[in-house]
Design a protein around this nucleic acid. Structure first.
Length: 834
DNA sequence: AGAGAGACCATTTTT
DNA sequence: TGGTCTCTCT
């Protein structure tokens, strides 16, 4: 095996790795090998421990970890050994308590290495790590997300579950593709059994610790419905596919580790000993697998701290169990409970509204939420005519507050229930030239060119990765089409060898054309030459990949904007790799970088220092705070989401209420809820119904509609604000205008979609905006001039001569992404920007 | 093999 | 509404 294997297994001595490998090959039951490996691991750990102690890591000078704490906070921070449950309301200083307690433990002589802090998001882990380091410089406390922690353990003990340490982590689309293939192999029509739903069900099962074997056995015993019969077939086949690819999906990371811990008592014991203090954040969002993992690490050393707030549980739909937090006290009977109820984040007005809202949940432990902060301004519920007014109104208020109170852009957040709602707000912000960022970090890694480049990297690390093979083998095109690939794969299955090995012996594959065989061999050779040891770093290796694979060659000389963009994106990926190289130092490995890429999430991209307004879903807003928050679309069907209304138990409705509660409590100073009279969603325009929650939260109403709010909105228990809307509006405009004057002019170029969507709603997207001689731009072919416009019945054909290669092409105006260039601030631009 | 047209479909939240 | 997938034409 190549060196990647060795470096991935760096945690174990070569001897142990070799032993594991032979035993895995001999298919010996892993149980007999584990204690040995674990013991060696522990010995290593103890050695490292001694080194650490010699280095004398301690609380920084002048730091008093008990300073500025409320009695309740101090009680939690001072807690020594034994289980601790911290029920922490929003803004109650939860992170502060956790980090201070870690520092306090170290101060009392607990080794930093025996402390493990687990969060849900990378961002939360990052914050916690840096805060701990502020208190205890250089402390090697392990702060990690559930998934990263599991990935790390799984690398170390991969053999035990039948994997190799260089396993790949599949993303959602790989997973869906794999399931689709498995469905087809089993003669199910993916059109009828959507891979999405099957994947969803499998994910659910994995989260609940139901293995493929268990589930198919259940089915054999006659339990389950029709749909589950299919899943009972697909799930085990999919797991086999994963194992053969030496790959896992997200849920596997947790499931594998959970079973590792429960099936190997000796290993569990060792790790329990290794991580003596375990602190879990957002405990209310743990699912069965996560619960199993942390419980397993807290048997002999039950120094577990669970921090959470049942009122902020918003992932029950994903298998999170609120019961876990209730069960905690039962599972750890001598557990100490601390309640943090004082809010330090928000004004009284915000806290009051949020508290009133959440009080409507019936399945809930009563909890107060109080604050000593300033009274603050009323929470406002602003009603607009439609979504574009709503977006404009939000943008205007942001301008106003930014101008009047000198609030930086980064202190504003706009949150919504579904991603689809962000579009109009984005347009409004762009129009107003307000810098913004959308929390969508994963989007970068979703791009085809990024996945392609990473596929090569994945193959270099893990030659069995079928998903990566399928992606890379014919990208860029090598004439290795579907048929050739199928022949190769069939033969590989027959010979029981990996696809890459099959490539090397492509000459032996029956019915394969000479060209194809040569192509496969060349591909195998290309992958074989990729070697991290020779390249030195992941960044260099990636550069080599992009060069040698021919990915870049196709783009470099292309006039297409999208190709240039691709090139730029890949360069950005290389930059990311170099950053990784630097951060990881000697520890760097392909696996490490790939793992980082795979486990990134949307909210991770939120950059506090970016100086821009943040747009995000309510879910990803959890854990963050902003001075000003807008929650948009607070309407029946959105919040609460229509799906939740179908649940007669009311459980899902309560989760929606918690979701809004989470959103509201992100605000420090000002909170706006917005709604519209009509909303266009999925191409359908409907009159909206104000959300039940708006009355429950007891907020002030502000009317910004042209004709006044209809009766529907003026409800019996209404809390009218005698608002001087008109004068306020005028002031808005004055301030807005002053501010706007400072920023550069609006952009002259907009995309075709913007041109179409930004126009007046009545004016059908008109093809008439194209004229002969007009300068236009096509995202694919670049700049060109219109040489002919012809109208055939209702459609308009536009013929364009492009500068590049003197290409002439005809488009249907209504369908093409063609856009006019250099539109002056004349009629067209005004129509666009209104 | 590539581009465009048209059908089809989904449409909650995420590591 | 729009994004994706498939079909068809070149």
């Amino acid at each position: 095996m190549p060196s990647a294997w060795e470096s991935a297994a760096a945690g174990l001595s070569n001897h142990v790795v070799a032993e594991m490998r032979t035993r895995a090959r001999r298919m010996e039951p892993p149980g007999c090998l584990l204690p040995d490996a674990a013991r060696r691991y522990t010995r290593q750990y103890v050695r490292r421990e001694r080194r650490t102690q010699r280095n004398r890591i301690g609380v920084g000078e002048g730091v008093n970890v008990l300073e500025d704490l409320t009695p309740a906070q101090r009680e939690a921070v001072e807690h020594g050994e034994g289980p601790l449950l911290v029920l922490a309301g929003p803004g109650s200083g939860k992170t502060r308590v956790v980090t201070r307690r870690i520092a306090r433990l170290i101060e009392r002589g607990v080794s930093p290495r025996s402390i493990l802090a687990i969060t849900f998001t990378n961002k939360a882990a990052e914050t916690m790590r840096s805060r701990v380091h502020q208190l205890v410089p250089g402390a090697p406390v392990w702060v990690s997300t559930f998934h990263r922690f599991s990935a790390m353990l799984l690398r170390r003990y991969a053999e035990v579950v039948g994997l190799r340490p260089n396993y790949s982590i599949l993303d959602d689309s790989d997973q869906r593709r794999a399931i689709k293939q498995v469905l087809q192999d089993l003669d199910y029509d993916p059109a009828h059994y959507s891979p999405d739903r099957v994947a969803g069900r499998i994910g659910q099962l994995k989260g609940d610790l139901v293995t493929a074997d268990q589930f198919s056995r259940q089915y054999e015993e006659g339990i389950g419905n029709n749909w589950d019969q299919v899943v009972a077939h697909v799930y085990p086949a999919y797991q086999r596919w994963l194992l053969e690819s030496n790959a896992v999906d997200f849920d596997d990371l947790l499931l594998h580790v959970a079973s590792l811990l429960s099936e190997h008592p000796e290993l569990r014991r060792q790790l329990d000993h290794r991580y003596q203090f375990v602190l879990v954040d957002e405990y209310q969002d743990t699912n069965a697998a996560q619960y199993r993992i942390i419980a397993a690490l807290s048997q002999e050393h039950p120094n577990i701290q669970a921090t959470g707030d049942p009122d902020q549980s918003i992932y029950a739909w994903r298998g999170a169990r609120i019961e876990n937090i209730l069960r905690f006290e039962r599972e750890f009977p001598d557990c100490h409970v601390v309640k943090l109820e004082q809010n330090f984040r928000s004004t009284q007005a915000i806290v009051r509204s949020a508290d009133r809202l959440i009080a409507h949940n019936r399945q809930r432990k009563a909890k107060r939420l109080v604050t000593d902060n300033a009274p603050g301004e009323d929470v406002e519920l602003v009603c607009f005519d439609d979504a574009s007014q709503e977006a404009a109104g939000i943008a205007r208020r942001i301008h106003q507050l930014a101008g009047e109170q000198a609030i930086p852009w980064s202190e504003f957040a706009i949150v919504y229930r579904v991603n689809a709602l962000s579009r109009q707000v984005e347009m409004a912000l762009r129009r107003e030239r307000i810098p913004y960022q959308v929390a969508a970090g994963a989007a970068f890694y979703d791009r085809a060119e990024i996945k392609d480049a990473l596929a090569y990297l994945r193959l270099a690390a893990n030659p069995f990765d079928r998903a990566a093979f399928a992606r890379a083998v014919n990208t860029p095109l090598r004439g290795l089409g579907e048929t050739s690939q199928r022949r190769l794969a069939q033969w590989a299955d027959l010979e029981r060898i990996g696809l890459l090995d099959a490539c090397r012996r492509a000459g032996d594959v029956p019915k394969l054309s000479k060209n194809a065989a040569r192509g496969f061999r060349a591909f195998a050779e290309l992958i074989g030459r990729l070697d991290i040891a020779k390249s030195g770093s992941v960044g260099d290796l990636l550069t080599e990949i992009v060069d040698r694979s021919g990915l870049a060659a196709a783009w470099i000389h292309s006039p297409r904007e999208e190709d240039q963009q691709r090139l730029g994106n890949v360069q950005e990926l290389i930059t990311a790799a170099r950053q990784y190289d630097e951060a990881a130092g000697d520890e760097r490995s392909i696996d490490g970088f790939l793992e980082q890429c795979a486990l990134i999430s949307d909210s991770d991209s939120v950059d506090d220092a970016a100086g821009s307004v943040t747009l995000m879903t309510l879910h990803s807003a959890k854990g963050l705070e902003f001075r000003v928050v807008f929650v948009l679309g607070v309407e029946e069907g959105l919040i609460p989401h229509e799906r939740s209304l179908r649940d007669v138990s009311g459980f899902e409705l309560e989760e929606e209420r918690r979701l809004l509660f989470v959103g509201m409590t992100r605000a420090k100073e000002r909170l706006f809820l917005t709604q519209t009279r009509i909303r266009t969603f999925r191409g359908r325009t409907l009159a909206s119904i104000p959300s039940l929650f708006t009355t429950e939260a007891e907020v002030s109403r502000v009317d910004e509609t042209a004709l006044g709010v209809p009766d529907l909105y003026v409800q019996a228990r209404d809390f009218e604000r005698t608002s001087d809307d008109e004068s306020a509006d005028k002031k808005d405009d004055a301030v807005g205008a002053a501010k706007r004057a400072d920023v550069p002019e609006r952009p002259l170029l907009m995309t075709g979609a913007e041109l179409l969507n930004g126009g007046k709603p009545s004016a059908a997207p008109n093809a008439n905006r194209f004229d002969e001689g007009m300068l236009v731009r096509h995202p694919r072919y670049g700049l060109g001039t219109i040489v002919e416009v012809s109208r055939v019945s209702s459609r308009t054909n536009v013929t364009v001569r492009f500068a590049h290669e003197d290409r002439v092409q005809t488009f249907v105006a209504e369908k093409s992404p063609l856009q006019p260039v250099g539109v002056k601030n004349g009629a067209a631009a005004d129509a666009v920007c209104e």
